[in-house]
Every structure is written in C-alpha cells, then in structure tokens.
Design a protein around this nucleic acid. Sequence first.
DNA 1: AGTGCGATTGACT
DNA 2: GTCAATCGCACTA
Length: 209
Amino acid sequence: MTVKSPNEKLRIRRLRRAELPIDTVALARYLVGKTVVHDLPEGRLSGRIVETEAYPIGDAAGHAYRGHTQAKNSLFLERGHAYVYFAYGSAWMLNISSERKGIGGGVLVRAIEPLEGVALMERNRGVSTLRDLTRGPGRLAAALRIDRSFDRVDMCSPQSPLWLGAAVQRVGTIGVTTRIGLSREMHRKLRFFERGNRFVSGPAKLLQT
DNA sequence: AGTGCGATTGACT
DNA sequence: GTCAATCGCACTA
C-alpha cells in the first residue's frame, strides 16, 4: 500500500511523448505502474495505473474501428492525448490515444491506486471506501474529476493540468486477460493489470494468468 | 425523427 | 450473484 499522508509530497516526473511506445498494445502494458496526475487549485490528485485495456488498430470493439468521426476524433490524435467519453449515461471514461497522428487507437485506463489527494477524491466521488474510490474506469474518472472538458487534452504537454507521470515505485508482475464488458472481439487478451493489487477492477476469475 | 446499444455502476435478492 | 438506470452517438429511413 502506498497511499501518502496529505502532507507528504511525491516527486513525480512528467512522461515525455517520446517515452511512450508507438503501439497500442505496447502502450497499454507500458502504462501499468505509471502515474496519472490531475493538478487542481485545491490540490493534486494522483494515482498509480494498475489496470489498462488496449483497443488497437482494426479491433472491432474499439471506438476508432468505424473510422474518423467528430466524437471519436481524439483517438486519432498523436499518442498521449486524452480521449474522454460518456458511457451508459453515467460514467466518464479516460483513454490515452496510442498511435501515430491520423491512426485510431486507444488505451482505456480501468483502475488506479490512489496516491495523493485521497480526501478530495472522496469528495468528488461522494464515498469514503478507499478500495472503491478508483476501482473501475467510471469511478477513477469521477475521483480525478475528469469529464468531457478533458477530451483532446495533450497529457504529454508540459503545461497540461492532466498528465502522465513516471512510476513512483517498482511495478509488480503484470497479468494479461480478456477485456471487460465487451460483446465483440471477446477472445483477445488485451487487458493488463498489476497482479495482486487490490485496486484492480473486474471479476475475481479474471485475476488468473 | 426514431431506434438500439453500449469499453458501467450501484442497489438489491 | 442479478438487474435496471441513463444518454450520447451511430445508423436507418
């Protein structure tokens, strides 16, 4: 467990775009153990990425599959941009664009382990159970106060309030399973997570492999 | 203009 | 474990 006390400050290095693999599946694996940070006037919210899913080129379950539309435009931006969309009328989802400019692909951030700003995250979510605070894509977006206004944000820009950071501790071994909540391409193993981490979402039976 | 359907969550048996 | 709420978007006409 790595939740910091409110006064303890973490030094987190911003990731440069050049450090991100230019491949959706490679990026999804790479991002496990890295950090998502949202700097707000009230303070910093941050967490370790512990679960991702890849939606690569040609994937029929991917939002980029049917081509370049207005709503899915950000999936076609250079890698490292946020693609934020609203699912099931209730939950915002944070994705990172993952291919070269003009090519559609994305990595869904499914869960983070809270690092900084836990009290503010609890306020954003309206709950105080630590384990449920950021376990699941809709929950982590709410905790980090991410909504449609963050769509298209460059998370590798030195000025961006929402950004990707380097790992702050060693990453455990990474498990690989099928993705969650799909009705197409269900066989593909494109979900990556840190084994044994209690902030990983999804059914227990998917914790093998 | 109408319809179907989610990359989910939270409430409930 | 099951299940319905909820709404933006893509697709059909």
